[in-house]
Design a protein around this nucleic acid. Sequence first.
DNA 1: AATGAAAGAAGCACAAC
DNA 2: GTTGTGCTTCTTTCATT
Lengths: 149, 149
Amino acid sequence: MKIDGIDKTIIKMLINDARTPVLSIARKVGVSGAAIHQRLKKLEKSKLIEGYKMIVNPKSLGYTTTAFIGVFLDASSQLAPTIKSLKAIPEVVESHYTTGNYAVFIKVLCKNNEDLMYLLNKDIQNIKGVLRTETFISLEQHINRQILI
Amino acid sequence: MKIDGIDKTIIKMLINDARTPVLSIARKVGVSGAAIHQRLKKLEKSKLIEGYKMIVNPKSLGYTTTAFIGVFLDASSQLAPTIKSLKAIPEVVESHYTTGNYAVFIKVLCKNNEDLMYLLNKDIQNIKGVLRTETFISLEQHINRQILI
DNA sequence: AATGAAAGAAGCACAAC
DNA sequence: GTTGTGCTTCTTTCATT
């Protein structure tokens, strides 16, 4: 998959605003709308573009607490059922199988610290195989971006 | 800010595909396009909607390694210059000021483990005030989603 | 790959209910 | 809040280069 300057402009403009009309990209780069349209379809087919998402502000929904949780599993635990249990917790927005101390590393969004405590003590601790957890609460997020193209 | 069922449908459809036309949302919920259009403008003004973003697949760009890095800073270090240095590293996609062991907790995307090693030993370690780091490489990501509305 | 043209679809604003 | 309407703009396809 070769990406030239025009493709980069398309991607940059749509990363910035996914609802940007094809025609306004076309005017920006100085080619026809049909050309941009065809390039965009090709980019979408190439799997370089995963999709277009509206980004909802969690704070507007009352989710003010972000935390990362390292989860220790006992040696005999299977990963699959643990993941399934984590998926059932709506506050869990990311889950990774990681090297290092933890077996599973998750990112959660909670309405407040009390809800986080409840999530830790009830939802997480009650998952079969979970030994203990280590929590890092994000007091402030300074960087939030995608990889550069 | 009150959100009713129609608003939820708008949000759900646009989270799924930010380029969904207003009129196809309108047909889905059974109201006029103008009504959806006006609701959407109101939602955008309310800051509940942060924006619309094209999601690029990092793997398509060769970024196959995701890692979380806990950064220890010496006690006298200021946070602001550290953040500035981190912002200058394009692989750093998230940065949080956290409670717990670390001062700063970051998420990085690298092309491979060698690049990650370089990033740790050169880019990160050379930042003034950084004492040491702890790295968790994500071997697999099972969950990646937004908070439910 | 890009273009221009053309038809249908969608966006948007406004008056009216 | 919602609707209908009218105008503008955009999307999408296709024959052409």
